[in-house]
Write a protein that binds this DNA or RNA. Structure first.
Length: 349
DNA sequence: AAGGCGGGGCG
DNA sequence: CGCCCAGCCTT
């Protein structure tokens, strides 16, 4: 049996029942692929259901407000995926009359679709012979063929795409692509792979040489930057008796684009009360000096891949001057980072 | 070619 | 605590 035959056979026996495996609708396959980028199946699953439910067709998604798309995406991270998803839906409606393009080349033109996703959709839905190369495939191939070229070098990216391409079966491309990924996720795992009961242990070069634990090779260090966030949480009561606060939308570059947060003062180091007092009038556009208190004595440390956000929430109460605000009861409508969502959940307005 | 972009789970 | 997850985009 060939490599691909073994993978296909293993997949046939071991594939999980996943909701996006019950359809060949390219829209739904696309949704699942975007959601699963850098995301575990268990984490992405509920998001897949809520998106299919809210937007049954690509037209429904295209017609939605970005705000709603981001709100549904809240908590999943890498929010450019949600913005690109929305933009791509609009492209499909406008440029392709609402019908998903069927070829790798055309799919590649859509926002948020790169080599992996174009290969996945074109192979799964249209049986185009394009090999998917995701983290699982890098791992399986690097071990089986004993390749120590760094998977995140340009040489490695090119090398593994070609190698994966050469391993494609003549038919059942989509199943094979899903099979090798599933194999990497379940059998040939990053740590403690199940080599004892592996259907391709025979030809596995890394297993023979004892280099499993060294593969795949990845270069580059992840240096974590420390940042200090001070959120100013203004609270005011309107004449009608409604409690209001303020949110602002993050714009430009950086994290959490287009998500909402409380007015923010970022500092070079830990900020104390006196430093905040100097700035909050300007940030909140206030003339007076309302009472302010620190909500959390210890930093709330919110960890992103490359940043640790050391956060303090400063409560600014009874801001009579507060002009424009949003009702506290409306806060849940806004897409916010998990850091903000957690605060809203625990803070009693 | 390198850096930025989330949040969560696991050993 | 470090690594990894059905990657992509920008510079």
């Amino acid at each position: 049996m060939s490599f691909s035959d073994k993978i296909l056979a293993w997949y046939h026996e071991n594939k999980r029942d996943l909701p996006w495996r019950e359809t060949l609708d390219p829209y739904k396959i696309w949704l699942s692929e975007i959601i699963l980028q850098q995301t575990r199946v268990a984490q992405g699953m509920p998001y897949y259901f809520r998106f299919v439910d809210a937007f049954p067709t690509v037209r429904d998604l295209a017609n939605a407000e970005e705000e709603q798309v981001l709100k549904l995406w809240q908590g999943l991270g890498y929010y450019s995926r949600a913005r690109n998803l929305h933009a791509a839906a609009k492209m499909v409606v406008q440029d392709y009359n609402g019908v998903f393009p069927t070829s790798y080349e055309e799919l590649l033109k859509l926002k948020g679709i790169g080599d992996y996703t174009a290969s996945a959709i074109s192979s799964i839905c249209f049986n185009e012979p394009q090999a998917v190369v995701d983290g699982n495939v890098y791992r399986v191939l690097s071990r089986y063929f004993g390749v120590d070229i760094p998977i995140n070098s340009s040489e490695g990216i090119k090398y593994f795409k070609q190698l994966a391409q050469e391993m494609l079966p003549p038919i059942n491309i989509g199943d094979y692509n899903q099979g090798i990924m599933e194999f990497g996720a379940i059998q040939c795992t990053p740590k403690n792979p199940n080599c004892e009961m592996c259907p391709i242990a025979d030809g596995c070069l890394a297993l023979a040489k004892g280099t499993i634990k060294n593969l795949p090779v990845k270069v580059g260090k992840t240096k974590v930057k420390k940042r200090y966030f001070n959120y100013l949480v203004p609270i005011s009561i309107t004449e009608a008796g409604d409690k209001i606060t303020q949110l602002r939308q993050r714009k430009g570059k950086g994290i959490w684009q287009n998500l909402w947060e409380f007015p923010l003062l970022e500092t070079e180091n830990e900020a104390e009360l006196d430093q905040i007092e100097k700035s909050y009038g300007e940030i909140l556009n206030l003339k007076g000096k309302p009472q302010m208190s620190l909500y959390n004595k210890e930093f709330i440390v919110h960890k992103l891949s490359h940043q640790h956000l050391h956060t303090k929430f400063w409560i600014v109460e009874e801001v009579i001057e507060l002009q424009e605000g949003i009702a506290v009861s409306d806060l849940k409508k806004y897409p916010v980072p998990v850091l903000i969502a957690e605060f809203m959940k625990t803070f009693k307005f």
